[in-house]
């Protein structure tokens, strides 16, 4: 406990924490939140939804792009992770060194933040959704690769051994021995990752990597308060809807597995 407190105190110095500044400026925060919900004319946003959502068509298109980015990124990452997982899992890996290499590779993809990859891909592919998709795909590859490998490590080895006993090669024993056991878990993790990625792709636009983040960043930077709240509400609602939807699918999947 004392160690934690000491570390916290040191961090306060390093992070230039100043309570006085905080209390002096906290009014700005509530004021900021207040201004978010007022139009330029000073009226509350809800009184004039047409004015509030003046850019609905453009934002809806960008939001659609954001979701497509998240979908494609998740799918590409999941496909990669699917193949890597069987190489990385300690119990079925064809070779120890392969498992080690794949694990380190996934770790690398997971640790470097998606935004850094996005910055780099923006250099290579130019501004636009492509950079964002690749950044999401690589980050998902790292995260899902680890989770998938853990799922594979927890399987019952008997079916795999059974298939191997018939003389089947490695890929066949994976296909018929391991895959049926892990599929529902894989899908569940992918859906979870998709939820996360929708959130992340909404901010990738901050570095110019496509999606609604570009407009949001501009609105925040230029103090278009009502635009900020309009876009934020759209993002929050979309994320909530996607969460509920994928949550339903996940629960049905879990029910399927337990019902067997």
């Amino acid at each position: 406990m004392a160690v934690v407190l000491a570390a916290a105190a040191l961090s306060c110095v390093a992070a230039e924490v100043s309570p006085s500044l905080f209390f002096a400026k906290i009014g700005n925060f509530t004021g900021y939140i207040g201004r978010l919900f007022h139009l330029d004319s000073g009226a509350l946003v809800v009184t004039d939804p047409v004015e509030w959502y003046w850019g609905l068509a453009r934002w809806a298109r960008l939001l659609g792009e954001t979701i497509v980015m998240a979908y494609v990124g998740t799918a590409l990452g999941a496909i990669g992770a699917f193949f890597l997982a069987f190489l990385a899992a300690a119990n079925v890996t064809p070779a120890r060194w392969l498992s080690f290499t794949v694990r380190r590779f996934c770790e690398f993809c997971r640790t470097v933040p998606g935004l850094v990859f996005a910055l780099m891909f923006v250099i290579a592919f130019g501004l636009g959704p492509m950079a964002g998709v690749l950044a999401i795909a690589i980050h998902s590859l790292g995260a899902l690769g680890k989770l998938f490998a853990e799922v594979v490590e927890n399987i019952d080895m008997k079916p795999v051994e059974g298939v191997q006993a018939t003389g089947a090669p490695w890929h066949v024993s994976m296909r018929f021995g391991a895959l049926p056991q892990v599929m529902s878990n894989f899908v569940s993790y992918v859906l979870l990752r998709f939820e996360v990625n929708v959130r992340e792709s909404a901010v990738l636009g901050f570095v110019g990597a496509g999606g609604i983040g570009m407009d949001l960043f501009e609105a925040i930077r230029k103090f278009y308060y009502s635009d900020v709240s309009a876009i934020l509400v759209m993002i929050v609602v979309t994320v909530a809807v996607i969460d509920i939807f994928t949550g339903k699918i996940r629960h049905r999947l879990i029910g399927l597995v337990e019902g067997r």
């Binding site: 925060f29 992340e200 960043f217």
Partner: peptide
């Protein structure tokens, strides 16, 4: 559901 980066931008303000 509001991303950390958005919070950061708000607090910077």
């Amino acid at each position: 559901s509001v991303d950390i980066l958005i919070w950061a931008l708000i607090w910077i303000g």
